[in-house]
């Protein structure tokens, strides 16, 4: 294939990756920004979303779109509810101590992962795409569903942005993020906000998973790589900044794809990882954050 189309394809793939990454990272960023804790189990909520999507689509025969719509509504809700209880029963008890939260969420990571293994088994599970449409470019065929993923991610992103900047809930969240104690003094139920934020963050990861699972497969170990990548996105983008998260997801998603056009793939991974690390070193507050927020 010629260079031009090759680059075009790499860009398309990068955009899909960036879209999904952006949603996962957004969830992590919310939790990170508002609650100031690192949720190591975030990738497992993503995985849970994917596995539940496979499970839920299994209930419906016939048109795969029905199952998919059910999955994208029920799956993230279930994950959100689970996350809500995790927050109530564990994170609140350790008073959001940063270190204790890391250990607790590592524990939750193992628990979720192993429960999924026990309940749903170790095989990679496919989910049918809600529709099947191949776009025939002159040089290659491309799945129409992947373009839908990009669109869906943009819509969700806009929705989250709207909630945070234009609604009362968003105001409360921002207030809590900015200064927890003052927020409390103004009568905001900080505890409730935390629980909602944690559940929403997990739910966003689950939405991303339901979107991706017709492209990839649900597997009980699938949570690790997105966790690492979304961590990177959150840090690069700057805490709590939606715009930063979006830009960082685009950088990570695209750089991985496009650098691999020029280098052998493994070398490309090494180079892109190093580059991102260097951005962090020389601009540790992230691209859109302020230093004081770290």
């Amino acid at each position: 294939m010629d260079f031009g189309p090759f680059l075009f394809l790499a860009t398309l793939e990068g955009l899909v990756q960036a879209a999904v990454l952006c949603l996962i990272a957004l969830g992590l960023s919310l939790v990170f920004g508002v609650m100031r804790v690192v949720n190591v189990a975030h990738g497992e909520f993503y995985m849970l979303g994917a596995v539940l999507a496979w499970w839920i689509t299994g209930w419906f025969a016939g048109n795969p779109a029905i199952g998919f719509v059910a999955a994208i509504i029920i799956g993230p809700l279930l994950v959100g509810v689970i996350a809500y209880f995790v927050e109530r029963l564990i994170l609140r008890k350790v008073e959001y101590d940063p270190e204790a939260t890391i250990v607790a969420t590592i524990g939750i990571l193992y628990i979720v992962q192993q429960l999924v293994l026990i309940t749903f088994g170790p095989d990679a599970r496919p989910v049918d795409t809600p529709f099947y449409f191949l776009i025939e470019f002159p040089w290659f065929g491309y799945s129409g569903y992947k373009l839908l993923v990009i669109c869906a991610a943009i819509m969700l992103l806009l929705a989250v942005w709207y909630v945070i900047t234009r609604t009362r809930l968003g105001l409360v969240m921002r207030a809590t993020q900015y200064d927890r104690e003052t927020a409390q003094n103004f009568g905001i139920a900080v505890n409730q906000v935390y629980a909602i934020v944690f559940a929403t963050g997990a739910g966003l990861a689950a939405v991303a998973a339901v979107l991706i699972v017709p492209i990839q497969q649900a597997h009980y170990l699938m949570g690790r790589d997105p966790l690492l990548l979304s961590f990177i996105v959150v840090i690069i983008g700057g805490l709590g900044s939606i715009r930063g998260t979006l830009v960082a997801a685009l950088i990570i998603g695209l750089s991985d794809g496009i650098i691999s056009v020029f280098f052998s793939p493994t070398l490309a991974k090494m180079v892109s990882t190093l580059l991102v690390a260097m951005v962090l070193v020389f601009k540790p507050e992230g691209l859109f954050g302020s230093r004081s927020q770290l």
Binding site: M1, L9, A10, Q217, H219
Partner: peptide, 28 residues
Amino acid sequence: TSFTRYFPRVPKDTEVLYHVMVGPGVLT
């Protein structure tokens, strides 16, 4: 976890594509 961008490397005059993959990503 995603493979699409590797396929353009397959030269046009390829007669046989030989593939082997392992792990949970195989179906993708």
